[in-house]
Amino acid sequence: MSDWLLNYRAMMGRAYPRILGPWREPSWVLFDIFLPLLGIAAFIFYYRSMGAPEVFTGFVVLGGAMTAFWINVLWSMAAQFYWEKETGNLQLYMLAPMSRMAVLAGMAVGGMFFTTVRAVSTFILGFFIFNVQIQVTEPLALIAVFLVTLIAIYGMGMMFASLYMVWGRGAMNFSTLMQEPIYLVSGFYFPVRQLGFWVAATGSIIPITLGLDAMRQLMFAGSNVFPFLTWQLELILMVGLAALFLLLARYSLRYMEHLAKREGRLTLRWQ
């Protein structure tokens, strides 16, 4: 069997339980679709209580929907190798003859499917309930920005996964740490320009910062969205970041696997 076919099968094999699993245990519909809307609604009412322009409601709905992808990257991509180690699967992956990247790609594909359902639901319900007015003048550009954002953040997740292979419980704590602080520096709920140029520029290392800013520009074209950079430049930067993270993921996976084998950490649990 060719390497490509083997890796494709490995990817689909790893994606399969992620796509099928949720339908066998449907309680996630309540927990992952309807309940997160409440937190988003709170931010919308917060803006409304201050008399903010209506476009800010759209910012919150967009940011809230994109948190689904970020959470998925953190917990179901990056932290997953740690989790696989804890449940005893990691050593089986290491013994199997496919590429580790194929396993991660399978996690990404399966995770994206599940998360897209959540994000789209948030979008639709949020826009419907709060009557958000969007004005998309360049739909193809919006789709391109969205897809490149996903590739870049999942690439980043793959890179982090290599760290999680050698980390112990610090991995879980790191994932926890990467939520609110990232929501802050990436401007999930407010224009990132508000943080000042240098903080926003530093935050742009995380591709979702640029992705959100570009999507705001493309979705609310008629309003003042306080852009950080032009969406074209942000798209180019994200393409660069996506390529960089995927490349780094490949090398760091190899290095961390070597390190983990040398230090005997692949089967080390509950540390």
Partner: peptide, 15 residues
């Protein structure tokens, strides 16, 4: 779904 439960219920109280 611990995270979803927490996020959801905390979100409900937050709202």
């Amino acid at each position: 779904h611990g995270m979803g439960i927490n996020e959801g219920i905390a979100g409900m109280f937050y709202l």
